[in-house]
Amino acid sequence: MPIRPTFMRDVARLISHAGPAVLSVSALVLVWEAYARVSGISPTALPAPSRVLVQGFEQRDVLASHTLATLQATLFGFSCSLCAAFLFSVLVDFFRPLRRALFPVFIITQTLPLVAIAPLIVLWFGFGLTPKIVLVALVTFFPMLVALVQGYDSTDRDIEALMASMGASRRRIFVAARLPSALPYFFAGLRISITYAVVGAIFAEYAGAVRGLGIYILNAKNNFRPDLVLSAVFVSATLTLCLFGATVLVQRAAMPWARFEEPKP
């Protein structure tokens, strides 16, 4: 079976890629642990990593429920954002002048500082899921839209001319040529945006929420529990990495031809 050798190669590549990073992170954690123990610094200022781990583990049920809330907001918000970005990308692709009308508005949304906008959105939409979804969509919509539009424009002109010579309609050309051409751009945008999405959700929660890692972090900070703050940070980092990994897997599955192509310079 061809699956096994590629799988083994992937594992080997993962080890060779991730090895140095694992080493440097481990070294950092060790130095931190040593410093926290030897210097006698108060754990309310700088908790040792071991303490972060233990405290976080003790709080695992609470942490898990908050994490679930954040994950839910991230996925909901990101899905809404993806749908909207796709719809607008199609609209803009078929009606070019719209691009010039809409893009400036979208660019302005990208210049808004999150710290200022998050409390306002909570004010407008309450403490539930809605403000989180709105904020996640706000930070991820435009990058995804740009990725898609750029992807459509990357379509090989010869392929479009060929399809036109076959009598294909505009819609047909879009579906059969422009859409698949945009996939690499789409996934590049997806990988970046999914990390923004988690940050966006946590920001919204930090500005006010019933549940979620953001509000957990805020409470832990107010209770002078930096160990719990760091536990939550650790969880959110892990969450982001998992989501990132998931997009890579989805891309593999969605673009089976890509592994045969020579890497672009």
Partner: peptide, 29 residues
């Protein structure tokens, strides 16, 4: 009128299997 046209570069779609690339014109029809 439609002539069968082969562009200067092959214009094969990287995401279609060879058989589906060769069948493209028929599918469009």
């Amino acid at each position: 009128h439609r002539f069968a046209f082969m562009p200067q570069r092959d214009a094969l779609m990287p995401w279609r299997r060879v058989i589906d690339n060769t069948a493209l014109g028929l599918e469009v029809q």
